[in-house]
Simulated scan of single mutants.
Amino acid sequence: MKKLLTLALILSATLCVQAKKYKLALNLEVGKEYIQKSNAKMTITQNFNGMPIEIGMNIKGDYVFKVVGAENDQYDMEVKYRTVEMEMESAQGKSSFSSNKASDQDIMSTMLSRMIDKPFKMIMGQNGKVIEIKGIDNLFGGMFEGFDITQQQKDQILAQLKQSYGAKAFKGSFEQITAIYPEGKVKLGKKWTTETNIEAGMSVHVTTNFELKAANTEYFLLHGEGDLSSNPNSPFVKQNGMDMKILLDGNLTSDIKIDRKTGWIIDATIVQNLSGNTELKASEQMPEGMSIPMTVKSKSVITD
């Protein structure tokens, strides 16, 4: 009889845990700073006239988000970069740049150092969606001071940096990590869907199906599986004197741990596999244009 009673109590407790619903959302405090560190590694392979060309990239960044106001389920935030690092490796060799290594001999690192501690504004909802970004172009102010480079070189560098760090790029890459919260309360095993767009050198729509996998007194654990689809009608962008656009489709998986009290991301890993083409627009030099097959494999790790 005691064994039956014990079993009944265990089953009852288990059912209660499974039936319990949780509110997953940002719950940030005005005046406090929240940190996010990202490390994105990717391998890009292009097939040019039957010859595969592989490029490895590693982009790191540390950000500070200070909540300066909160109203109507929205947070007014001041955002700053603390460090920015970039590495690239190809058949031609390896190069690396860091905002911590500014010098007269390293122009790119010096440029990155001039993006540090320049605040811009971001308004974000409790659901992790970015509502507005203001003043992000301040990051690029004074970047070329003291460098003897042509206006064309400045324009090319600035265009490339804005593709990675401009307003559209920041919104898309940030939302891909933070736009994860469901509407209403959810219980263990519950699934929901989120959507966002990425604009960082290409235009991609992301649809992710999330599931609440675990909950304890410290954190919630989410697992996501999603699809990425490019917009075939996206405009061509000029890069290195050529009009081009990148069309990639694929999938992603994510495992995200969020703080139970604040909803802020403690740890996240996102893996993406994409394939498609780089399309070169027809021109006088290339009357029929060109389509270059490519694949992109990436792994992003986020910590607080």
Rank of each mutant, 00 (worst) to 15 (best):
E71Q: 14
K299H: 02
V79I: 14
N273G: 10
V67A: 03
F210N: 11
Q272I: 08
N233E: 15
A200S: 15
V30E: 14
N27C: 00
S109Y: 12
Q176H: 00
D155L: 04
T150Q: 01
A91F: 06
I266S: 11
S298I: 05
V186D: 04
E183S: 13
V64E: 14
S98E: 06
L221K: 15
Y165H: 14
P293M: 03
G226P: 05
M1S: 13
G135K: 02
T196V: 01
Y181G: 02
L11R: 08
T196Y: 01
I136E: 09
E199D: 11
I256S: 12
E199C: 00
M242D: 10
T193H: 05
V296I: 08
T278S: 10
N216G: 01
K23I: 13
Y81E: 04
V186S: 02
E199S: 08
M143H: 09
N127L: 04
K168R: 13
D259H: 07
S234W: 04
M77W: 08
I10R: 02
A215M: 03
K21Q: 13
L222T: 10
M294Y: 07
N216V: 01
F140D: 03
D117C: 01
K134P: 03
Q153C: 04
K191H: 08
E183W: 10
A215D: 08
I131W: 00
S12W: 00
N240D: 06
Y219F: 13
K37C: 07
V30S: 12
H223K: 15
C16S: 08
Q105V: 14
V237K: 02
L11C: 13
M115K: 04
I35S: 08
L28S: 04
N216A: 07
M86I: 14
N49L: 10
H205M: 12
N197D: 09
E218G: 02
N47D: 09
I265S: 08
L158H: 05
M202F: 06
D137E: 15
I136T: 05
I44Q: 08
I302Q: 09
A70D: 03
S203V: 11
L274N: 06
E71Y: 02
N216K: 06
D267F: 11
Y165D: 00
K185V: 13
F170I: 14
Y63E: 15
I116C: 01
M124G: 02
Q285N: 11
G166I: 01
S229W: 03
Y219S: 14
S38Q: 11
D106Q: 02
G50Y: 03
S298A: 14
A268T: 04
E195L: 01
V68N: 04
F48G: 00
M286V: 13
L252K: 06
M108I: 15
S103W: 07
Y165G: 11
A8I: 08
A70Q: 10
Q176K: 11
L28W: 02
K171M: 12
K94Y: 10
S291Y: 05
A159T: 11
K297C: 03
S173C: 01
K190A: 13
A179S: 05
A214Y: 12
K190Y: 06
N58L: 10
K101C: 02
V17P: 07
M51I: 13
N127E: 08
L274T: 11
G141W: 04
E145T: 15
T45K: 05
G184F: 03
S275Q: 14
Y34N: 00
N72A: 12
V237Q: 15
